[in-house]
Amino acid sequence: MMSDPRGLDPTWPDPARRYNDLLGGKDNFAADRASSAEIAKHFPAIRVAARENRSFLLRAVRYLAADKGIRQFLDIGAGMPMSPGVHEIAQRVDPTARVLYVDHSELVAAHIRALAVSTEEGRSAFLHGDLRQPQHILTSPQLADALDMSQPVALILAAILHFCTDEDDPYSAVRTLIEALPPGSYVICSHATFDPVDERIRGRLTKLVDSAKHGPFQARTRDEIAKFLDGLDLEPPGLVSTIAWHPELDPAADGHEHEAISYAAVGRVP
């Protein structure tokens, strides 16, 4: 969840804090709640979309830890911590699992450092970094200390890429990150889309985005999102709505595609 690049500004809605509000959290400000409320006026299912995105993330982490033996996770755009977090899910499967959370918000950093408590056998660490500067992440001492990049890693890009406009060149950033992963690694990705909604709702959401009142945002089509996953072997069922990615796993999906308005996938690095 990309945060406000201007830093801690309580008068400006921040995507990470707004997401926290949409999920029922308390780590947000009045501006974030006002932003959530205005978005909900145009798209009443926004809280469903947030919930289903988080549910997908937790299912995907558990799937990779339990079924694929992944023990290392790199969560970029981690956002405000909420329980259970990525490290908790992974370490319930294997207490030795290691997680590096990355975000460019100092407020997120403070919360993760205080709340993301690892098992004694594992690791939970934080790096102040930005998806749009992948080399900074890949060459950081925090990454080298927390993860063994010679062994498989799950790269998490959950609900972050739609906060990068094409001007940010997110395709290049994602390609750089994936190329740094060893074979047998995985990518967990979810991304907002307007594909499932009718033309009337799409128009309202587009006007909301164009207003720039809620920060940078770019919904993408299925084909545009699929480009982020080029070269990966997608786990079944492929690139689908967040509610359609193994909905039978815990936490079970509970919604409709036109409410979730996000695609999701898990891909393996060959």
Rank of each mutant, 00 (worst) to 15 (best):
S262E: 08
Y63R: 14
S262R: 02
I178N: 06
V240D: 09
A212N: 13
S185M: 10
L57M: 11
R98T: 07
D223M: 05
H162E: 02
Q72K: 07
D195E: 12
H162D: 03
D166G: 10
P236Y: 10
F43N: 02
D4Y: 11
V209I: 12
A50V: 06
K26P: 01
K227L: 14
F126K: 01
P81K: 08
I188K: 11
D75Y: 04
D250Y: 09
S211F: 06
D21E: 09
L107D: 13
H191C: 05
K41F: 05
G184E: 08
L229E: 05
D210G: 13
V61G: 10
E121H: 12
R59W: 07
A116S: 14
V61F: 09
I225N: 04
P84K: 03
E121G: 00
S190N: 13
R51V: 08
S55V: 01
F43T: 01
V86T: 15
D168N: 13
A212T: 14
T165Y: 03
T139N: 15
D250T: 12
A252T: 15
E257L: 00
D103A: 02
T193M: 03
R200H: 14
I39R: 01
T139L: 15
L229Q: 02
R132F: 02
A110G: 14
S83Y: 00
S172I: 03
F73K: 04
G122T: 03
H258C: 12
G69H: 11
V108M: 08
R92Q: 15
R202A: 14
D168Y: 04
H87K: 04
P196N: 11
A60E: 11
F126N: 03
A173D: 10
G184R: 12
D168T: 11
F43C: 02
F43A: 04
L57I: 06
L58E: 07
T176N: 06
R98C: 05
V269A: 00
H42E: 14
I156W: 02
N28F: 01
G69K: 13
V197Q: 05
D130H: 04
L115C: 07
R98W: 05
R47D: 04
H191V: 07
S124A: 15
A144W: 01
F29K: 02
L143E: 12
E121C: 11
A90L: 08
L232P: 07
K207L: 13
K68R: 15
L74K: 08
Y263T: 05
P10A: 11
V86E: 05
L57G: 07
T119Y: 00
D168M: 09
P134W: 09
S35Q: 01
S35M: 04
I156P: 01
S83C: 04
A78Y: 08
D198K: 07
S124C: 14
Y171G: 10
